[in-house]
Design a protein around this nucleic acid. Structure first.
Lengths: 207, 207
DNA sequence: ATTTGACTAAACTAAATAGTCAACTAATCG
DNA sequence: CGATTAGTTGACTATTTAGTTTAGTCAAAT
């Protein structure tokens, strides 16, 4: 009953976008409200703090963006290594697009925000870790499937996943720091090499 | 003439420590002043803004910490791959120590701050990039020397350096996000594997 | 020893920011 | 319809923050 609203959704969208384009600390509640076209009173009607909104925004991002996207690319019907390379290629493209649209390479919001606030905001950190752990499963299953299929050299899947995640996150962060999407261009090939893929696998030519 | 002061040095030290333990955005000029035991009037006597101080603090960090440390570990008198592994092992130890001392894994200040402010503070970003580029040379020369020596499989040194830096930075960031220094434990071994070192090389047992 | 310039102290202003509140509006249900 | 619940608004306070000012202190060079 009563009236309904999507102001809370607009707030989550605005918060995510601003934290991503700038940083958690640089964004104020006023900024978020004004971008969402919501008054401060309404903000506090829905959320108690910026941290609480950030947690909700990250969860929404997972549910509406990351998960659907990952499910699409990491479908079991696709060859394991192809899941990975097509995903990373699309990642590269999306960062190129962001650079064109905003003049900035934004990288990964979970990693950026997580790195920024891990020593401060406990709840936000926990949500970031949770989301990164969910994403990890996709990578790990690629490795297991590739291993079963024999398309990569034998290895310990958990350790390889650590290394792969590290490499990807590191290169993505590098791209943000350098504000240069081209850093991401060789990421598919780098990943395959890290995994010791037996064949070149279907990656599009990369220079 | 006139008197001398080390207030500016204390400000740089305080700024670096705070940005590292928390984040660039979470730290205020008042925080820095109070940690450095310097009054705001003196702050503005030496620096125009937090950004300017941050640039000076990062440069000081390079000059007094990073460079001496890197020169020590990456001495040409040491076998190329041993330079890398001993450096990474000491990195692991220092992060374990930070965790004990502060209860927090801090990661790399240049990467954390760089990632946080790359879309906002132009001057600080430029300094971060400069410092990361200087550090890159040490990695690249390890790769070239290892290649010349035949201790790693043939590769393109520049591309390998990209991947190695990505991996290291990614794992270090991961350690900060997870607040878990153990993430760094296998970094020496991971790096050797990424480089395709021909022998196990002198790494202490890991796992 | 005095002068000069480097530095400090503390109190100040102005702006930004977080957070509150009570009155208001609109949708829904009986 | 009118009552109820859900959401909105703008004006409000209190605090934090950046940045300024001015008078004064101290150390070194002459």
């Amino acid at each position: 009953m009563g009236r309904t609203s999507d102001a809370d959704e607009r707030l989550k969208d605005a918060a995510l976008a601003l934290m991503w384009e700038e940083s958690y600390g640089a964004v104020t509640i006023d900024n978020i409200c004004s971008r969402a076209d919501v008054k401060k009173g309404s903000f506090y009607y829905f959320f108690d703090s910026k941290a609480e909104l950030a947690v909700a925004a990250l969860e929404k991002m997972w549910e509406t963006e990351w998960k659907p996207n990952l499910d699409r690319f990491f479908s079991s019907s696709v060859e394991p290594l192809t899941r990975l390379t097509t995903y990373l290629e699309s990642y590269y493209k999306s960062q190129v697009e962001a650079k064109v649209r905003l003049g900035k390479v934004l990288g990964c919001p979970a990693c950026s925000v997580g790195c920024e606030i891990s020593t401060q905001e406990v709840d936000v950190s926990a949500k970031v870790r949770e989301i990164l752990a969910r994403k990890r499963r996709y990578y790990e299953s690629v490795i297991r499937d590739a291993l079963a299929e024999g398309s990569i050299e034998p290895c310990d899947p958990a350790h390889k996943a650590d290394a792969l995640i590290g490499l990807i996150q590191g290169i993505v962060t590098q791209a943000r720091i350098m504000n240069d999407a081209e850093v991401l261009r060789h990421l598919p090939a780098m990943s395959l090499e890290l995994l010791r893929a037996k064949q070149p696998a279907s990656t599009h030519p990369t220079s």
